[in-house]
Amino acid sequence: MEVKQFSSIFENGVTTYCPGCEHGLLLKFIGMALDELGITEKAIMVGSVGCSTLAYKFLNVDYVQAPHGRAPAIMSAIKLLEKDKVVFGIQGDGDALSIGIAELIHAANRGIPITVFMYNNMVFGMTGGQMAPTTPEGMKTTTTPFGRDIKQMGPPLDACKILSSFPQISYLKRVVITPKPIFTKDRVMYSSKEAMDSYKAVLNAFKTQLMEGFSFVEFIGTCNVNWKMSILDSKKYVHEVGVKVYPPALCRDAFGVEKK
């Protein structure tokens, strides 16, 4: 019996992520959603700088590598010229909210129908775990060895709060992509609800783009290697601390894709 293959995922593509990182989960869902909507052949992926750079080794779609933080500008240009194509980008929190916040905000304000997926792991992952604008209070990183000081660095940036002030955004959602650990008497289990919700968010974001709207989805995930935690501890941290700083929410759904 043949194993079902997704046309947008390489048969032998191996992600470049550390074991337990949910970035790969996001790529898998993007591939699945492209297949389900039948838009693989007209999809153009724009990669940013960070762990998402090497996504092109996993997803079999056209790929443009953007400079650090500039993916939304490149996506906008491609979409304006190739109106019937599906243009999406994968960014990290450092890429989208630190160096590239101007490009993100202006693309969002123009409401150009593109899709931005932001994987928020609360640190700079690829450079080795430095503080990001999204690092929660007290979190120890390589550049904040005594924990992030809110008085000096300000509170963590909330992408959904910033973007919800722009009227031309059509779909704005924050989901947790990390499977929730469930502690039973004798063992630990993981729930699949978070993953299913994330897949739905990816699907709805693409649907919004097909209906000519700007969509942005933030995924709260882990970076267990740079947090210096075990896989289980990092997942626990997301569900104990992460969701308090970044509560999952549907901030905008202009076309009502969520209900359909």
Binding site: K4, T15, E22, G24, L25, G31, S192, A195
Partner: peptide, 17 residues
């Protein structure tokens, strides 16, 4: 139940059939 398929971040679990 396919929980393993949903949570696998590497798409190493190809199918539950």
């Amino acid at each position: 139940c396919k929980i393993c398929w949903w949570v696998c971040p590497e798409y190493a679990i190809l199918e539950v059939r």
